[in-house]
Write a protein that binds this DNA or RNA. Structure first.
Lengths: 127, 127
DNA sequence: CTGCATCCCTGGAGATACTG
DNA sequence: CAGTATCTCCAGGGATGCAG
């Protein structure tokens, strides 16, 4: 059994990897198989070349993605999920399912919160 | 069924909530029941007063945490997970399980990566 | 005790230009 | 095509002080 606070450090470790801006995008786009750099960039239009590189390096470093370099010209590099990357994908799908299921609830909670805030502000303003 | 790119936006939405520095700490510490502000701050030593407030507000706004104010002096405020917050906790436990299960793999992958990097650097240096 | 406002600083990330 | 280097900008978050 692992200690309480230690567990939190660990989950932060993974969140630092998975919770950044682009990692999940890349992982989801690698879900349907090996792709090369340009393909990924085309399929994630908002990502910059730099951030795609950085993100892929991070995933490679953690053993979640494997990088294959073909010694050809022009250069060609393929990326694909490792088995461990696959298991992460499966796990994250749980989070995705939760998201889809509760998106409306969250939205209405936010609306309700904003409404409450506004009525409080109005009271203060009249005062 | 939801569209592909739309799904990614949604999961980013939740990750923006869940993936920040403190949210999961707070959620996990609220797992064992309703607590007041000071209790949480004591149990998460590294968090600042400001960030605890900010984090709790965010969770409240999304309907994941409920805030109860007692009109007493000195002030007393309790926080507890809503039912939706509970379901999120359950889901995140999956991610935590994955983390625990693969922590060693990740660590050795990082070590292997660093080793490869170093040998490359050495080659370049000798060159 | 709880919470807000202010200042400040660092790291994440975009834009751009250059290399093999 | 794939990757690196540099500059820059801004939001996240820490420290501190004040208020109800």
């Amino acid at each position: 059994m692992v200690e309480y606070d230690e567990r939190h450090c660990m989950i932060r470790d993974v969140l630092d990897r998975v919770g950044d801006k682009w990692t999940l995008h890349v992982i989801f786009h690698l879900a349907d198989g090996r792709k090369r750099f340009m393909e990924l960039q085309r399929q994630i239009p908002a990502i910059s070349q730099r951030m795609l590189t950085v993100t892929l390096r991070g995933l490679e470093e953690d053993g979640l993605v494997e990088r294959t370099i073909y010694p050809v010209v022009p250069p060609r590099v393929d990326y694909e999920l490792t088995p461990m990357g696959q298991t992460l994908l499966d796990t994250v799908r749980g989070l995705m399912a939760w998201t889809i299921e509760h998106l409306d609830d969250i939205e209405s909670a936010r609306a309700a919160y904003a409404a409450r805030e506004n009525s409080l502000k109005r009271l203060a303003g009249v005062d």
